[in-house]
């Protein structure tokens, strides 16, 4: 019984020291998160890492149920900005381990259901469409206004 207890203590000690080592240096298992094309999120990456799902869920209801197309967070834009290119210089789909969403979701072992219906690759027409939408005009106007001040 004593031996068993000693082994138990030893195990706890081992796990404890492993955890400490993990805190000092990033684990070699931690994913290498691909860089996005656009400007960084003003909210910060930590905020987005925790809240992206809630933001998307809220805004999807606004867009789909009420037709609000000027929402701040749209999956379409996430996908366009966070596209990762494969060896053929084309954006990879979620089938590839390199896909932006998969990098973290594989690490966290959380299944993504979005791509059963949504395309995991950016929409080639998106740039064209975005320039058509009034929201972009407004953003541009705001930007120019800011620049002139």
């Amino acid at each position: 019984m004593k031996r068993l207890f000693a082994t138990f203590l030893l195990l706890i000690g081992l796990i404890g020291s492993m955890a400490q080592a993990g805190e000092d240096a990033t684990s070699s298992l931690y994913p290498v998160i691909p860089k996005a094309a656009g400007a960084p999120h003003p909210e910060g990456n930590d905020f987005m890492r925790i809240n992206h799902k809630n933001l998307l869920k809220h805004d999807r209801d606004l867009t789909m149920r009420l037709g609000d197309r000027e929402v701040k967070y749209s999956l379409k834009e996430c996908i366009a900005c966070h596209a990762v290119n494969g060896p053929d210089a084309q954006p990879v789909s979620v089938k590839s381990e390199k896909h932006f969403c998969r990098v973290c979701h594989d690490y966290a072992a959380v299944k993504v259901d979005c791509f059963q219906c949504h395309n995991s690759k950016p929409d080639p027409d998106l740039v064209k469409q975005l320039t058509m939408l009034p929201v972009k005009d407004r953003e541009l106007a705001e930007y120019l206004e800011g620049a002139s001040q």
Binding site: S93, C117, L126
Partner: peptide
Amino acid sequence: EPLTDQKSNAPRGQGT
């Protein structure tokens, strides 16, 4: 059937 490469303006998927 499962689908891939949907239009971004018309998401559609199996079972719906």
